[in-house]
Nucleic acid binder design. Structure first.
Length: 428
RNA sequence: GGAGAGUUGGCAGAGUGGUAAUGCAGCGGAUUGCUAAUCCGUCAUCGUGUUAAAGCGAUGCACAGGUUCGAGUCCUGUACUCUCCGCCA
């Protein structure tokens, strides 16, 4: 959500930003939005004049002489009817406006690369060496089979496609990764918090899933409840409607939750294995900070650095991708993705997604703070980044660290979370 | 699932049909100067106004309706919180 006054004052910048993000005039009619707002303003002014007059009449009744009362009451009643009609009109227009407003994407950063889709994303750097095996490396599905680490076929019969069941040391590894990342985040000042995976509808608008991608979300109509695709959804609304003190900021959450995605738009993509499943676990980094672009950009870099450190601790080769305007989601101002090397696919695959949302979400959730400098109430900035998401992260992990016999090496930083084990495999 | 009590500003807390007290915190100003105190204003959203303010006005007492000239207050529905009962990992 954007400030309508900002839109009016910067209409050309807004139009340019929309175009960069791939929205056409047919998708979003800015001139229409502004015209509607001006209509609403006129209606407000006229209806407020009516209300003022009516209030004056009502307040005069107590002091009026008995014989005057009936006349005042009649006048006030008539005004009331008129006002009611105006208010109905005003409410209808405001509802229309609010629907349009919720469809307005965030403006992209001037520093984001401009492009139509993922082809416009820019690799900022590559870190770590892609491994060269002197044997024929296995893909993660094979590795799971020979190590007795999974029940992929059986679980598909029980729970359907795009689900997973992993066991033995691989199951332990999954949880170990989360523990390692949660510890790292706590060291960086984050508050560890476990959150539900169920959500009412309102937070989905607050985060910006709705009204953009309803078909990606599980919905349970009997309870009017949704399944959350990320802890970001919950954390973004946790402080909704609050006015925080500036010195409570920044608020840093390390949220852990099971995550659910319908993957409706991913037909045929990554249908086997652990890359894309309907239910997974994610540790999420979420930041609420001051309304100051240099402050939130600082946190954006910090979040990116933390997740790079996670991949380095896991000893995975990766690249940092700066996402272009056309590939960014509607809420985002600026976005980096981290992609880890997946040997069996001979390419980098996304493990982390790091975004600065500026005040776009805070406007939707009405999350504000009182600024110490001027005492004014301002919308906060929010940011989010993956901490670690499993089982996807297991794919590059076990493929990069595999040995010829199918066993998998555990990097030093992860060993404490694996009971000191340096290697895992069927007979270890 | 059942019964009862509750929800007022950033926080605390009055208010039983006639303009939302008061205190604390924050912000602005004034004044006095021993580590701060005192006084005044402001302190949620919007309209109007302005370079910016001031000012004027509308709205706002969990949310949505209703009754009334007039609703924090009366009525209906919903959400949430607390207590108790039931069920339960």
């Amino acid at each position: 959500m954007l400030d309508i006054k900002f839109i009016i004052d910067n209409i050309d910048t807004i139009k340019e930003g929309l175009q960069k993000k791939g929205y056409s005039k047919e998708d979003l009619d800015i001139d229409g939005l502004v015209a509607l707002y001006k209509d609403i303003t006129k209606l407000k002014t006229s209806s407020q004049a009516l209300a003022e007059e009516k209030n004056k009449l009502s307040n005069s009744i107590k002091a009026a002489k008995p014989e005057e009362r009936q006349e005042i009451i009649n006048k006030s009643k008539a005004l009331g009817e008129e006002l009611k009609k105006e208010m109905e009109k005003l409410n209808a227009e405001q509802e229309k406006f609010s629907l349009l407003e919720f469809k307005m994407p965030n403006m992209p950063s001037p520093e984001s690369p401009v492009g139509p889709d993922d082809s416009g994303n820019v690799v900022r750097r590559k870190v770590g060496d892609v491994p060269h095996f002197d044997f024929k490396p296995r893909d993660h599905i094979e590795l799971m089979e020979i190590n007795d680490w999974s029940e992929m076929e059986r679980i598909a019969r029980v729970s359907g496609s795009r689900t997973y069941a992993i066991k033995n040391d691989l199951a332990k590894l999954e949880l170990a990764m989360h523990m390692m990342v949660l510890d790292k985040l706590r060291t960086n000042g984050f508050t560890i918090i476990t959150v539900p995976s169920i959500s009412k509808e309102k937070p989905l608008y607050g985060q910006g899933y709705l009204p953009f991608s309803r078909d990606e979300i599980y919905y349970m109509p009997e309870d009017d409840i949704y399944l959350s695709g990320t802890a970001e959804l919950i954390l973004n609304s946790l402080r909704a409607d609050e006015i925080l003190q500036e010195n409570e900021l920044p608020i840093l959450y390390a949220g852990f939750s099971p995550c659910f995605r319908r993957e409706a738009g991913a037909a045929g993509k990554d249908t086997r294995g652990l890359v894309r499943v309907h239910q997974f676990m994610k540790t999420e980094q979420f930041v609420i900070c001051k309304n100051d672009i240099s402050e939130s950009e600082k946190w954006h870099k910090k979040l990116l650095a933390i997740s790079e450190e996670v991949l380095q601790d896991l000893e995975l080769p990766y690249q940092v991708l700066e996402v272009c305007t056309g590939d960014m989601g509607a809420p985002k101002y600026r976005q980096y993705d981290l992609e880890a090397w997946v040997p069996s696919q001979n390419c980098y695959r996304e493990t982390h997604s790091c975004s600065n949302i500026t005040d776009w979400q805070a406007r939707r959730t009405n999350l504000r703070y009182r600024d110490n400098a001027d005492g004014k109430v301002k919308f906060a900035h929010t940011l989010n980044n993956t901490g670690i998401a499993t089982p996807r992260a297991l794919v590059p992990f076990i493929e990069n660290h595999q040995n010829e016999d199918g066993s998998v090496n555990i990097p030093v930083k992860l060993q404490p979370y694996m009971g000191g084990k340096q290697r895992i495999g069927k007979d270890l």
